[in-house]
Design a binder for these strands. Structure first.
Length: 400
DNA sequence: CGACGGGACGC
DNA sequence: CGACGGGACGC
């Protein structure tokens, strides 16, 4: 089982881990993800802005409020935590609010968790602004853009009309070329209105055709909200909430600790069901999983499989033992390591009560067996800092 | 070399 | 023509 982390899993992609902050800054090109920095505050402010309250965007579809609480509690004490859900369907809307007790914890949460990859998402963590009508509906849809126009060009064109929160140019999934359409989200709705008045129907410098600038459709009342019948019939393929459109190489950075200088195979974003067998032992996993459906409490007896000691099955999740962590290890490291592999419910660094230093090990609870297996196979033997990690399912071992 | 937590569970 | 990573201010 060791050594799999140094070879490409077919469905994965291999990346050299450098400082993830610099990767974050460098990666913003033509079709990059989000435009502007996370922590810029609005200039609106007649109301004093909270320095403890954060908005978290681009959360994985299946992430629960308690998992979000677990993640952000690893930084500091929370005052509150709320995942926003659709009122009628109960589905996560992919964003939420985390309010810290202390300002410095909120700031550290932005520094440490913004850009964290969780499953198929890269979360964004930034200060929440006071809720107001003035900031709603400030997203613009722009079409007719010259194909050569980059995200930077787009921002340059709109910058004069207000403070840009995010920007994006859509690209063809296969060719990577611009589709000539994009989005600009302003801080304030008036700014967006002003941009429409000034730019709609105008011809960009050096272009031949005029662009169209209008308010983006509101995603909550779009018409593709009715999923096809198939969506109800194959829950496993819906684990990530729907089809994924991530050509390999779309991710320009990964949020691993700057501590490490090694390379690591990250799972490509796709459902486990479609992973090639030879890379994951998915056959075994599927067999086990189907048996567990009938006999969930006796996981270990079904297998004779050393991969699966009984104590690993822990309530609703699979508990993973991580050994050889450095004394200064904190929870965010475990989130960074395991988050990309699937749904993580909880992480824990075990510390000495006197020194408060890590005792060399910790635990990670993941929801899905298949994802836990891939995480273990990928991270066992991985060099973090100057330590080779040992990663396995938790056993019942206890101190003598 | 070293190695598997802990708070809490409720009727 | 074109709608994103579905979902950015408390659904």
């Amino acid at each position: 089982m060791q050594g799999t982390n140094t070879t490409d899993i077919e469905s994965g992609f291999k990346v050299s881990v450098e400082s993830w902050m610099s990767g974050m800054m460098n990666g913003m090109e033509n079709c990059a993800q989000n435009g502007t920095a996370s922590s810029n505050s609005s200039q609106s402010g007649h109301i004093e802005e909270s320095k403890t309250n954060l908005i978290v965007n681009y959360l994985p579809q299946n992430m629960t409020q308690e998992e979000i609480r677990s993640l952000f509690s690893s930084i500091g004490e929370l005052e509150s935590c709320k995942l926003i859900r659709d009122k009628v369907t109960g589905q996560s809307l992919g964003y939420g609010f985390v309010n810290y007790v202390r300002q410095d914890d909120a700031e550290r949460a932005i520094n440490q968790l913004n850009g964290l990859r969780l499953q198929n998402k890269t979360i964004k963590v930034s200060y929440a602004r006071p809720s107001s009508e003035a900031i709603k509906g400030a997203n613009l849809y722009v079409s007719g853009l010259p194909k050569s126009m980059t995200q930077q060009d787009l921002e340059s064109m709109f910058r004069a009309y207000g403070s840009i929160i995010t920007s994006r140019i859509l690209c063809d999934n296969i060719t990577g070329l611009s589709k000539g359409v994009g989005f600009i989200r302003f801080d304030q709705r008036i700014e967006a209105e002003r941009a429409i008045q000034k730019l709609n129907g105008t011809i960009p410098e050096g272009a031949a055709e005029p662009i169209t600038v209008k308010f983006a459709n509101n995603p909550s009342n779009n018409n593709k909200a009715v999923p096809p019948l198939a969506a109800y019939l194959s829950p496993l393929t819906r684990r990530y909430g729907g089809p994924i459109h991530h050509p390999a190489g779309r991710f320009r950075y990964i949020p691993l600790s700057p501590l490490t200088r090694h390379s690591l195979v990250f799972p490509q974003v796709k459902t486990i069901d479609s992973l090639p067998e030879e890379t994951t032992g998915a056959n075994v996993a599927t067999d086990i999983k189907s048996k567990l459906v009938y006999s969930p409490s006796t996981g270990e007896n079904l297998l004779g499989n050393s991969l699966l000691p009984g104590s690993a099955l822990n309530g609703s999740g699979w508990c993973i033992f991580v050994y050889n962590l450095a004394p200064e290890t904190e929870e965010n490291i475990l989130w960074q390591l395991f988050g990309p592999f699937g749904a993580v419910q909880n992480v824990k660094v075990i510390r000495d009560l006197q020194t408060n230093k890590c005792k060399g090990f910790g635990f990670v609870t993941m929801t899905n067996y298949d994802e836990a297996v891939v995480a273990i196979q990928s991270l066992n033997g991985y060099t973090l800092g100057n330590r080779v990690l040992q990663v396995s399912f938790k056993t019942n071992k206890h101190k003598s």
